[in-house]
Nucleic acid binder design. Structure first.
Length: 415
DNA sequence: TCTGGGGTCCTAGGACCC
DNA sequence: TCTGGGGTCCTAGGACCC
């Protein structure tokens, strides 16, 4: 199999952008974020600082760590620009996140040279034109290209030539594989499996028993370099959600109602913008001790009106709390909509279509509410997101994370 | 300053149907 | 009448990814 798959991954992306924008930060340990580290520069990583770590822990590990504010608009612009460089070579680009993408250059080597040459050109252009380091892996499969780019970091290029795949994988730790997180890594280690080579030599039957059928099969395939996944350029979202960390709040309606309204508003406005709606509403409540529970309800028809999602979410949260009467404080609420479908007008028929159990009081006004929501969406498009909203959500201005960052994390819902 | 926010996929049990 | 098997959908929980 010719090695035409590229995986390109910007190095320590947010931190690199900050160092690009502010030369004083170059060569220094920096962290983007505050309460939690969103990204760390390589200088900070040398101290053990990494994304997801609390700011306090990071400061303990690296007292001279510099925290810097987020230039979120620049992250988006530069991330888009780097992906655009890939698109200069092939339309077969699958973007994974703001700073990472696969590309298949099989159809353009006659124009631009070997995959390795194209990868080197991309790296040079991103460095010259954007000022950012980017690592690229070149291999015959997505899984191998992804591992190659991780091995290439920082600021490197690794090509896995056809025929050398198993030599490349054999001694690498299983933790580098897609799908192996802390839990799986521990289970494998308990069986004496620490390298990908050892994993490849393990009978599939044992892996299925250890990790479950799907995960066992998947890992067995990947370890033996059987990965047939193609580049997918357009993907439809399967769910859309929003969450808010609350610190330590009493589990009362005064806390819950405005928060759920705000979250429902965030989720449904994104759905409406793409003329989408969803049938399943899921809420998540995290208690003070970080244990979390979820409750969900599936309707017969998709909805996207703010108030309808909010009211269902309230009912579900009430039910979840009723099941845990001793939990007096909550630390997070989340709302998610799944079973997404592109039937924007089905909502108009909702009051007639639902069985008694699901024909809740608010449903009769579904059409009117949907229309009111759309009017509000349009006003926001013109005057800005904060210009208008349900009064109760307007009170909810205490933000743990800027909206701009939330938007970076949002996936395009597709369509 | 006790750990952010947005996603995907899988599992297991129960309800329900054939 | 009893027992068994297979399939689909829903719900709750978990692991993992960026």
């Amino acid at each position: 199999m010719p090695a035409t798959i590229l995986h390109a991954d910007l190095d320590a992306f947010y931190a690199s952008v900050e160092q690009l924008l502010n030369p004083d930060l170059r060569g220094k340990p920096i962290a983007v974020g505050g309460g939690v580290v969103l990204a760390a520069s390589y200088e900070a990583k040398a101290f053990g600082v990494h994304g997801g770590m609390s700011g306090r822990k990071a400061r303990e590990l690296c007292p001279q760590l510099i925290f810097t504010g987020g230039n979120f608009a620049e992250y988006q612009r530069l991330g888009d620009a780097a992906i655009a460089v890939l698109h200069d070579y092939t339309p077969a680009v699958e973007r994974i996140s703001i700073d990472e993408a696969f590309a298949d250059v099989a159809g353009c080597t006659h124009l631009f040279g070997s995959p390795e040459t194209i990868a080197a050109t991309i790296r040079r252009r991103v460095r010259d034109e954007l000022g950012l380091p980017i690592s690229v892996g070149v291999a015959g499969t997505k899984h191998l290209a992804k591992i190659a780019s991780q091995v290439a970091k920082p600021d490197g290029l690794v090509h896995v030539a056809p025929g050398t795949e198993m030599d490349f994988l054999r001694d690498l730790p299983v933790g580098l594989m897609w799908g192996v997180g802390p839990v799986t890594e521990r289970k494998l280690k308990e069986e004496g499996i620490e390298t990908i080579g050892q994993l490849a030599a393990t009978p599939g039957r044992s892996l299925r028993g250890l990790l479950g059928d799907a995960a066992g099969d998947k890992l067995a395939d990947l370890a033996s370099n059987r990965d047939s996944r193609k580049i997918v350029t357009h993907k439809r979202a399967r769910s859309a959600g929003a969450q808010s960390a609350l610190g330590h709040k009493p589990a009362t309606q005064a806390t819950i109602k405005p928060t759920l309204r705000h979250l429902a508003d965030r989720v449904t406005s994104r759905l409406r913008a793409k003329a989408l709606a969803g049938r399943t509403i899921t809420i998540r409540v995290r208690f003070a001790d970080m244990r979390a529970v979820t409750r969900s309800m599936t309707l017969d028809a998709p909805i996207s009106a703010t108030v309808m999602v909010a009211e269902i979410a309230e009912e579900l949260v009430r039910a979840a709390l009723a099941d845990h009467p001793r939990e007096r404080f909550i630390s997070l609420l989340a709302v998610s909509v799944s079973h997404i479908d592109d039937q924007p007008h089905i909502q108009l028929e909702l009051p007639l279509g639902l069985p008694d159990e699901k024909r809740r009081p608010g449903a009769r006004q579904g059409a009117a509410r949907w229309s009111a929501d759309r009017a509000m969406d349009k006003a926001r498009d013109r005057f800005g997101r904060d210009s208008i909203g349900y009064a109760v959500t307007q009170l909810e201005k205490r933000k743990s994370v800027p909206d701009a960052f939330r938007e970076l994390a949002e996936k395009d819902l597709g369509r």
